[in-house]
């Protein structure tokens, strides 16, 4: 229905603005706004020497702005996550996507498409349903992760507004300037210790079965085990040697980076092959009845196959990191 009375139009505008205003100030602000609009109309009518028309009032109100924007000017400036936390929030979301969401999608999809049961036993409609269920799960995962992160940051924002804990800082506590080629000696010491411990344990307890003396558990390997034994031993020895080199000279060099890539590649291949090769023949545990030791080993083998995509993903990431390191060292050398 067309509006014929300018006052009606003004009343509608004031009502729309008032809707968004805080209750305590609503009446006062609306009255002041009304007085201002009326003064403007009075001025206009005096200049035109005639009553103002509805389209002219429409134009006048349009220039004042949308009711929600006008009301917004009176409201305190609030934000769920303020400018101080926003960069950290975006960084966490990126990390979340890179470390959790994208790998989950890739691995979930790989598990789904590579499983024999998906292709062999289900009809096309069931496959479609499984596919839909997978994406539903992924979308739920994405939403819940983003919602949890947002909620955590909103709470942090509220705490910061009350305590200002994020703005309190000391220049001397800033982290040292990062040298991407530097290797912390503490990390190298840990790497060396782990390598030594692993080699000792591997030689003492491994062949032909892996023993966990503290747990009183033994895992008996299948016939292909000697390859893994020597392979893992070689990887551990090389890793220990790299750690020693880093302790002496705690900096990446091109040759050291290439050796590290080769060692990591060998380790990745061994792990990936181990996960897919049903490595365990039997498991001996005091809690497992002798007749069930083979079945228990098969269960572990099944878990390993399920975890294979994750193993593959870690291998790809590790290789990527190594290649990036070599590329950066080459770039620095050429510069």
């Amino acid at each position: 229905m067309a509006i014929s009375n300018p006052q009606d139009l003004i009343a509608r505008y004031l009502q729309a603005v008032s809707f968004w205003l805080p209750r305590a100030q609503r009446q006062d602000i609306a009255a002041e706004l009304a007085a201002d609009i009326q003064s403007q109309i009075d001025d206009r009518e005096a200049a035109l020497d005639r009553p103002i028309t509805v389209p002219e009032v429409e134009e006048l109100l349009r220039r004042r702005g949308a009711p929600i924007l006008v009301a917004n000017g009176y409201l305190p400036q609030r934000s769920l996550i303020g400018p101080l936390l926003m960069p950290i929030y975006l960084l966490i979301l990126r990390i979340l996507a890179l470390v959790c969401l994208i790998p989950s999608v890739v691995i979930g999809l790989a598990n789904l498409l590579l499983s024999h049961s998906f292709w062999a036993t289900h009809s096309a409609s069931q496959q479609f349903q499984n596919f839909g269920a997978f994406w539903n799960a992924m979308i739920s995962l994405a939403f819940s992760s983003i919602a949890t992160t947002t909620l955590a940051f909103a709470i942090l924002e509220q705490i910061n507004q009350r305590t200002n804990f994020l703005t309190r800082w000391e220049p001397h506590r800033l982290p040292a300037v990062r040298n991407p080629h530097h290797v912390p000696r503490s990390g190298s010491a840990i790497q060396l210790a782990v390598s030594i411990l692993f080699v000792c344990w591997w030689i003492k307890h491994a062949p032909p079965a892996v023993n966990f003396p503290m747990l009183h558990v033994s895992l008996l390997f299948t016939s292909g085990f000697p390859w893994f034994f020597w392979g893992f031993l070689l990887v551990s020895l090389c890793s220990g040697a790299i750690a020693v080199a880093h302790l002496v000279h705690p900096c990446w060099t091109r040759s050291r980076a290439i050796v590290n890539l080769a060692v990591d590649l060998l380790g990745s291949i061994l792990f990936c092959t181990l996960f897919r090769s049903n490595p365990f023949a039997a498991i001996f545990d005091p809690d497992i009845q002798p007749g069930q030791s083979v079945a228990a080993a098969q269960t572990i083998n099944h878990w390993l196959i399920t975890l294979y995509p994750w193993c593959l993903l870690i291998a790809v990431i590790t290789t990527g990191v190594n290649l990036y390191r070599i590329w950066r060292l080459n770039k620095n050398a050429s510069a």
Binding site: I29, E32, L33, A35, D36, S39, R64, V70, G73, Y74
Partner: peptide, 20 residues
């Protein structure tokens, strides 16, 4: 309203949504 007019006459236009 007169405040806004005064400011505008002196070269400082200000919108109602900012002034109030």
């Amino acid at each position: 309203y007169t405040l806004r007019k005064t400011l505008a006459e002196n070269g400082l236009d200000i919108e109602e949504s900012t002034l109030y």
